[in-house]
Design a protein around this nucleic acid. Sequence first.
DNA 1: GGGTAATGAATAA
DNA 2: TATTCCTTACCCA
Length: 305
Amino acid sequence: MPEGHSVHRIALQFERDFVGHRVAASSPQGRFAEGAAEIDGLTLVEARAVGKQMFLRFENDLWLRIHLGIYGAWDFFGTVSPITSESEALGSMGAPRLRRAVRMAETENTKDVDLESFPPPPVGAVRVRLMTDATVADLRGPTACEVIGADQVATVLARLGPDPVTDNTPEAEDRFVASIRTKPTPVGLLLMDQSIVSGIGNVYRAELLFRARLNPHTPGKNVSEDQVRALWRDWVYLLDIGIRTGMMLTMDGQTPEVEAAARLNRSDRYWVYKREGLPCRVCSTHIVMELMASRKLYWCPNDQA
DNA sequence: GGGTAATGAATAA
DNA sequence: TATTCCTTACCCA
C-alpha cells in the first residue's frame, strides 16, 4: 500500500522503535541473507523517507535502501509505538496478517503455538526481519532492498523530485512548477514521474487531478502556473493528511457523513479512483477508466474536461 | 485450488 | 510499448 504517505509512516515507526537500538537483521526467506549479514548487530542511527524510498542508516555509514514497489509491505510486532495522535500504531496495518496467523493456528489445532510469544515466527516470504529487544519488523515483496554506501544514497536522492515533507519550501514548489510547465507530456504522466515530484502514485494522481478539475491529458506546458502551484499545494496538503491518518483521504471538507464513510470503507473513499462506470460524485457523469502508460487512470470526462 | 489484480519502476527494444 | 520482477488478497469454483 505504498504511496508516499505510507513510506513516511514506516520511517516514523522505525524512528520511534528502532533508532538508537542495536538491530538483529536476518532474511528468513533467504534471498537477502548476504545483505542482512552486513548490518546484523549494528545500531540504527537514522530513518529517512523521500517519496517512496526509505533509507535506514546503520553504524559505519551503511544504509539499507528499501523500495516497496507495488506490493511490498512491512509488518511490525511487539512494541509498536503510536506515530501520530490521529492513527493507530502501524502494527495495525499488519493486522490482517496477524488475524490470518490466528486462523492458521486454530485450524491446525496447534495449541502450543503461542501467538503472544516474542519474537513471532515469520509467516510467508519475509525478505528481511529487523529486530530489537522489543520490536520486530518484517518486510515482504520489496522491489528494492539493498545495503549501500552514502554515495549511492546520494545518487538515488539526486534523481528524485521534491517531496513535500522533506522539501516544503518555495524553492521546491518552483522546481515542481518549472518541471511541469516545460514539458509536452500529459500532466497525468508527469504527476507519476518520481523525478518530477516524489511520492505520488496511482491513487493520489487520479484524486489530485480530479480535485484540480484537470484533464489528465493536458500537456504540462499548457497547465496554467496557478493550476500547477495549486497542484503542488494540494499534494502538500493531502500528503500531510495521509501521514497523520494512515489513509489516503481525499474527500476532506465534505459533510461529516461523507468523511466518516470515507474513513470506514475504501469504496466510499475516493472521488474517482476505482470508480469506473459509477456516477461522478459531483456531476453524475460515468467515471472513465483508461490505460495511461499501462496504469489505470480514472477521471470524470465532464468535470475534468 | 486457480486466476487475477494491486497504491511501482527498471529494462529492453 | 512490452516485459520482467516481487508477494499477497480476493474472487471464483
